[in-house]
Amino acid sequence: MSVLLLAALAVILAWPVPVLLGRARWVRRAPAAAMVLWQSVALAGGLSLIGFPLLWGLAPFGDTVLDAAPAFITALADGSWIPRLEQDPWLPTRIAAATLALALFAHLVLTLAVTAVKTVANRRRHRQMVELLAAPPSERSRLAERTAGTPTRVLPHDVPLAYCLPGLTGSLTVLSRGLLEQLSAGEVAAVVTHERAHLRQRHDLLRLAFEAWHRAVAWLPTTSTAQGAVAGLTEMMADDSALAAHGRDDLIRAIVLTGEAGTLPPGRGEAPPTANIQGDGAVPLTLRLYRLLSPSAPLPAAARLAVVLAALCLAAFPLWLLLWP
């Protein structure tokens, strides 16, 4: 029964749930709760995808994964699985299924590690380029740095531009000369607060996880849907942080003038750009502006709490199926 439930859960979380969640309108009213739900869908989907062949393959060796895994390894090592063929002719297929599940798990972990290492290296190179090209500090850039709470660099570009570079030992906020010259002080402050929210809430880690998930199982179309949805939610969360401290008009004008749909760099090592630098597909500018120009009431606290509790239950369910007989 547990195997069937895990298989059904893997199918449901691989296609209909991401599609429906990606189209849901309530997420604009509660982006933080929606982010928790997306993480839960990804985690539960991954556990189910790995868990159902693993649980089916280990069934002859124990009642739970924790009990069966050591027995499975021992049987393979000493050849004791061969006499079991008389009782279970499906045993070679079961062993292949369990091995496939373990290989998929290793593939996911390795993809995450490789993606993280490449991202850190690319951001380091990008930061070195920024340091080389940055203009001398001015009074407005120092003001922006005080607002951001992180080191700030100004690029000698006339196009309004702002983004952040997360780092292991320190983050950097990057602005352009055109941004400081063409935007008012309030608009610059709103943009900088938006970038600060990206850094403070570690949106780069959220995007990194979903980028790795997409790369690991690129054959699954809904991983692209999840990646784009998470990118959009990070922008909504950063916009909400900016609105909490600055006027809505300042933020809207800043978005229009910069023409940006997202602010996290791709980290591929190219020279600092003069336009939107989203690496995972731009978050539609119209979506952000529509949300700001026609604001909806936030989702009630009880509804947000219900979403978070549902997400926690969803993430725990495949673990329960795997660890309890």
Rank of each mutant, 00 (worst) to 15 (best):
A254D: 08
A212N: 10
A135I: 01
C164M: 05
T234F: 05
S141L: 10
S141E: 08
S171H: 11
T169H: 15
L220W: 00
A189G: 00
A197V: 14
G232A: 10
A242R: 09
A189M: 01
R153L: 12
H203C: 02
D250Q: 14
S141A: 10
V174T: 03
L165Q: 03
A229I: 11
H198W: 00
P156R: 02
A189V: 03
Q201A: 08
R215G: 09
T150D: 14
D158Q: 14
R142D: 00
A209L: 10
G178S: 08
L132E: 09
R200N: 03
P221C: 09
G167W: 09
G149K: 07
R248I: 04
A148W: 00
L243E: 11
A216D: 04
Q128W: 05
D239F: 07
V188N: 02
A209Q: 07
R146Y: 00
T193Q: 04
V230Y: 08
R153P: 13
L155N: 11
Y163T: 03
V174D: 01
T169F: 14
L132K: 09
V256S: 03
C164I: 04
H194C: 12
S171I: 01
R253C: 06
A254Q: 09
T173W: 07
V256W: 00
V154Q: 15
A148I: 01
P160H: 10
A231L: 06
T150V: 15
L199T: 05
S224V: 08
P221E: 11
V154G: 14
G186N: 12
R142W: 01
S184N: 02
A148F: 00
P156A: 07
D239T: 14
A245Q: 11
H157Y: 10
M236K: 12
T234C: 13
R202H: 10
P156F: 10
L205T: 04
R215Q: 09
P137V: 10
L155G: 13
A242N: 07
L133A: 01
S138P: 06
M129H: 03
I252G: 08
L175D: 06
L199M: 09
C164S: 11
T147L: 07
G247I: 10
H157M: 08
L165A: 02
R248M: 05
R196P: 13
S176T: 07
D239W: 09
R127D: 04
E235G: 13
E187H: 12
P221Y: 04
L132N: 07
Y163H: 04
Q182I: 06
Q128I: 08
T147M: 02
L208P: 00
L133N: 00
S138D: 15
V256E: 13
H198M: 02
S171E: 03
L220D: 02
D240M: 13
A148K: 01
A190V: 06
A212L: 03
G186V: 14
V191F: 05
G232S: 13
R177C: 03
R140M: 06
A229N: 11
D158F: 11
V159S: 13
R207A: 01
L205F: 05
E181V: 08
T225P: 15
R202C: 05
A242C: 12
R142N: 01
T234R: 13
L172C: 01
L251I: 07
Q201C: 04
L233G: 15
P136D: 05
H194I: 14
L233C: 15
A134K: 01
L165R: 02
G228I: 04
H194G: 12
L257F: 00
